[in-house]
């Protein structure tokens, strides 16, 4: 289309075009890649094949990755770290966290006191957008988005995680072949 100005070509440019150097260079590059893939060598990055064979080879997920949620427990007493403060539910933009607390009577220094403890924790992963605002809001580092990324289930109900799932983790089949 002669709609745009084209600069006057030099002789070397004309000759290059005449001998189809442009096409030959491109074909040479793909051939180089083909040979590089077979020998798994590449001049730039050192490897010729970039495929990760996913179920066979597990990807290494970054430590900061925002994946499946988890409620951490005290490693010694195995009590939940959650103090039912509801900050995560307030911070959540999608409103997908429900913290259900209950009052229990405990004896502190000989006197009966009421304390709010966690009863049930509902986390709707189908609505979660993994922004990690809840994780940042948690004062006790209890709620954490882990490196687990396989969240698919067969039903919508399966996306709603309760306290047990959040604490123990969900059982998933890990395909390895």
């Amino acid at each position: 289309m002669p709609l745009v100005k084209t600069p006057k070509p030099t002789w070397s440019q004309k000759l290059k075009r005449f001998f189809m150097i442009d096409l030959i260079k491109g074909l040479g590059l793909t051939l180089k890649y083909n040979i590089g893939a077979i020998t798994d060598k590449d001049s730039v990055a050192g490897k010729g094949i970039y495929t990760e064979q996913y179920p066979k080879v597990r990807p290494d997920v970054a430590p900061r990755f925002h994946g499946a949620p988890r409620l951490n427990m005290d490693p010694e007493t195995h009590d939940t770290l959650c103090i039912a403060c509801n900050l995560c539910a307030i911070a959540c933009p999608e409103d997908c966290i429900d913290v259900i607390a209950m009052d229990v009577e405990i004896i502190v220094a000989g006197k009966p006191r009421r304390k709010k403890v966690l009863d049930e924790f509902i986390f709707d992963t189908s609505r979660c957008m993994f922004c990690a605002l809840c994780q940042e809001a948690c004062p006790t580092a209890c709620l954490e988005l882990t490196q687990e990324f396989e969240l698919a289930t067969y039903s919508r109900a399966g996306f709603v995680w309760n306290r047990e799932m959040l604490e123990q983790g969900r059982e998933t089949v890990k395909y390895t072949s």
């Binding site: 793909t30 890649y33 083909n34 590089g36 893939a37 077979i38 094949i49 970039y50 495929t51 064979q53």
Partner: peptide, 8 residues
């Protein structure tokens, strides 16, 4: 085609 595209 996969080899030319650095795939398997």
């Amino acid at each position: 085609s996969a080899f030319m595209q650095a795939r398997l």
